[in-house]
Nucleic acid binder design. Sequence first.
RNA 1: GGCGACGUGGCCGAGUGGUUAGGCAGAGGCCUGCAAAGCCUUGCACAGGGGUUCGAUUCCCCUCGUCGCCUCCA
Length: 451
Amino acid sequence: MLRLFDTAAGTVRPFEPRTPGKVSMYVCGPTVYGPPHLGHGRFSLVFDVLRRYLEWSGLDVTYVSNITDIDDKIIDRANTEQRPWQEITESCEAVWYRAMDAIGVKRPTHDPHATAYVEQMVALIARLIEAGAAYETSDGVYFRPLEVGDYGLLARQDIESLQVGARVDVVDEKESPIDFALWKKAKPGEPSWPSPWGDGRPGWHTECVVMSLDLLGEGFDLHGGGQDLCFPHHENERAQAVADGKVFARHWVHNGFVMVDDEKMSKSLGNFTNLLDLIDRYDARAYRLLCLQSHYRSPIDVNEKNSAQATAALERYDALARRIAGLGDGVPPDTATIERFVGHMDDDLNTPRALAVIAETVTEINRRLDIEDIAGTEPLAAAFRSMLVAVGLTVDDEVAAVGDEAATLCRQRDDARAAKEWARADEIRDQLQAMGYVVEDTPTGTKVRKG
RNA sequence: GGCGACGUGGCCGAGUGGUUAGGCAGAGGCCUGCAAAGCCUUGCACAGGGGUUCGAUUCCCCUCGUCGCCUCCA
């Protein structure tokens, strides 16, 4: 059984879905005002791995991840660029999904947009006012965290220290510095929606409360995001749900931060924090492998060296995939291997350990193939493929189609080698390498692939 | 000021009170016509100082260092 760290409990505990066999998870998605960065990439990959692993385990997963398309930053950008804000949100969303597709993140089951939920948000805010958890001021509606008994649960701080530490400017009409806006009354020129408190727009955190409960229902299984979302975002979502008398998420999962090399290095790295740049420079799978190589709750450092290392590691998987093409199809995966893998994955998603099992399996398969133990290889090959599916890693087992010219050279080289004309064979190899191919001799003749 | 995380061999990164993580890179060997791929072998590792213990990298305390959060950040 899967055990996961739960931020609210502060400890690893069993992950028990509300309905056996089904999992409902909500992962806070992007605010669409700019290109996705490495942090977006990490949380997307971490929760994609979790989702795939659950599905691989036979569970039916409903995965909801929102698109926040109402936000001050969107409005700012629209004003700065003199463009309609919808144009910004639409183009950013397109870029977002392009990046997600590139790194192999499955599309969510539902991707609710904040703009489609304004009415429900207004209704929630009205109920919160009625319940005494929120109050209207001249510029909006504010929430009173002090009304929520266990406020600070996710932040792991008590409410007093939150008040003492609050760095926000105290707005005159706010009762407490920790109160936050649920509704912002519109200023001239701002996009707005009607409400009992005048035209305006939703404030903070409300959209996720409404959308998660609408699509997943009360007491949904898991709510996730980056560690920076613990507070204030998730804390405030939870506070609103609690104040509304709702049972909210049963399990809170947060992934660690992404570090990029310090300023000294970043100069040479350029705009390295942009996810699209990373994909551009390295194998698109490399970032997933990097994320898998460290535990999801640890910080990871992304830099050129790590990315290059991950890319090199992928080649080993690809090489094996080519070697076992056609082997092990329809054969049950090796039980002992899968059990070890599952044991590590179930242990709070210990992907580094799980990856070690995969690496050991690769070695074992190669060893058996070296001695032509095909029968012994097949269950391991099946296990290898299965484990990759579980973590969402793809391998390239295609011997890439090569041009006619290269194919001809391969045949000529085979002829030369058969005739033991080594100088001629080496010459042709040099030629192929100059064309950008990696040349390998195999029992079935010269094989080339793009290096 | 408050809360929290972390410091492991050339690099990345798991883990454990006494026994091999794993990957990448390096060295040697096997295989190969030579390579490539693959396999085998190989590396005073656990920030520093105390303490508990028969024994600590692993538990406790302190120090140093790095980092995150404390209301609009994934």
